[in-house]
């Protein structure tokens, strides 16, 4: 897998490169800004790009802007956004167009080689990835509010994987259920929680997240 990186902190970039190399992944671009990565990606084909959200020159949402431009130029390239802010509104903007191959990971998770490899692989398979610590926090909050009491333990597990952006087959693989069982469980969850939207649509991750957040998950527009 050929990877491109855009990260302004040299030390973190170095650490990330090291981690990717250890995973046997080929870092073909290591850029300090989004523009640099975009220019390089036109010349060197990549399978996935890892982008820091906050980069120069604006230090606001350079990563997201780069992701949008990259997706427009190279639709098949998977995009993994790294953020220090556990803000789901960033993720909402990333997943807004319903296309797969997108991931939102907290920088804290990069030291976990397995999590990084898993995220990159899923993205390249066309799945969505949302950092499971964010999903875990949302589920814990909902559990506190007793909103998940109507779901069985199996359903809660499937809900969690669905919120992390996994596909039906991905959920089946991780839970060791038959894919048919997963599909049926998802339909039950949607009915019980009254979530609107197709259960197997790529947009369902947004619908599930919106439900978990208590109805509103607006992608922010700077």
């Amino acid at each position: 897998m050929r990877i491109g990186i855009a990260e302004d902190s040299a030390l973190f970039r170095e650490g990330l490169q090291m981690q990717l190399a250890r995973l046997g992944l080929d870092v073909v671009i290591a850029a300090g800004t989004g523009d640099e990565l975009l220019a390089a990606a036109d010349v060197k084909p990549i399978d996935a790009a890892i982008l820091d959200v906050v980069m120069p020159p604006t230090f606001t949402d350079e990563g997201l802007r780069t992701a949008e431009r990259l997706a427009a130029r190279h639709p098949t390239v998977g995009i993994l956004l790294l953020s220090q802010y556990d803000e789901l509104a960033y993720a909402a903007r990333l997943f807004d167009d319903g296309a797969g191959r997108r991931g939102y990971l907290l920088k804290d998770r990069v030291d976990n080689a397995e999590a990084l490899r898993d995220a990159l692989q899923r993205i390249c398979r066309g799945e969505s990835v949302i950092d499971d610590t964010l999903i875990g926090r949302l589920l814990a909050h909902q559990r506190h509010l007793s909103k998940l009491d109507c779901l069985t333990e199996t359903e809660q597990t499937v809900l969690r994987h669905m919120a992390e952006g996994r596909s039906n087959s991905g959920i089946a693989a991780i839970t060791k259920f038959a894919e048919k069982t997963v599909e049926a469980t998802i339909s039950r969850i949607f009915a019980k929680l009254d979530i609107t939207g197709a259960p197997d649509d790529n947009r369902r991750v947004l619908a599930v997240l919106a439900w978990l957040r208590g109805s509103s998950l607006r992608p922010y527009q700077a």
Binding site: D8, S9, L11, F12, E14, G15, L16, M18, Q19, R22, V54, F59, Q84, K107, D108, V110, D111, N112, A113
Partner: peptide
């Protein structure tokens, strides 16, 4: 803090993991 210290600590964390 965000661009300096935190990035460095995060990088250290990756290196420690390695």
């Amino acid at each position: 803090l965000h661009d300096g210290t935190q990035q460095r600590l995060l990088a250290l964390k990756i290196m420690l993991a390695a």
